[in-house]
Design a protein around this nucleic acid. Structure first.
Lengths: 89, 89
DNA sequence: TATATATTTAGATAATTGTCTAACTATCTA
DNA sequence: TAGATAGTTAGACAATTATCTAAATATATA
């Protein structure tokens, strides 16, 4: 998996709610329902944020029954920031 | 100098024109006039991008006569991305 | 002082964003 | 199969953004 769109990734990282979502997913996968208990926004808004993070390839989704487990895509995450730092050496 | 606002910094980095400006400033300082020769946007638009980069503390400005020399704030730049990576270890 | 140069500010406009409620789809279970 | 649960999609709305042209500010120079 690779970085698809740097602008998309930085834009995804520019929102504090989305950065908090990534931090929640740092240790383990979570469903939108579980994530929603940590945030004071509606589930559709959370869903929207998850779709942006997914579009930026910063998280992955695994469906199990009715549930969807979202996980941090650590590889792409490091790739994005490290590659960007490379460009500024 | 420190990171003031992570959202502001990532937002600044989410625009390709602004990333290109940072790359131009990687090696040396430049004035808006010189920078403008590399971009196909109006000078007011360029000025706007520079003000956002400055607000994000990613560049600094030094006035000399009528000219303003903009420089990459490498320290904050590395600080932002490295500290952010730290949070995701 | 008048004019030219460098850059920003003001104001307008179209596009994008984050949020909401309501409605929909998919899956599970009694 | 009916109802409950998990999550997304649709549509609306206010706020923000990137861009432009026109005007203003600041400095240098003839």
């Amino acid at each position: 998996m690779a970085i698809r769109d740097v602008s998309l990734a930085f834009k995804a990282l520019s929102d504090p709610t989305r950065r908090d979502i990534l931090k929640k997913l740092r240790n383990r996968s979570m469903t939108p329902g579980e994530l929603s208990t940590y945030f004071s926004i509606s589930k559709p808004s959370l869903s929207h944020h998850l779709s942006l993070l997914k579009a930026a390839n910063l998280i992955t989704a695994d469906k199990e029954g009715q549930k969807i487990y979202y996980s941090l895509n650590a590889t792409v995450f490091y790739e994005l920031l490290n590659n960007f730092l490379e460009g500024f050496k």
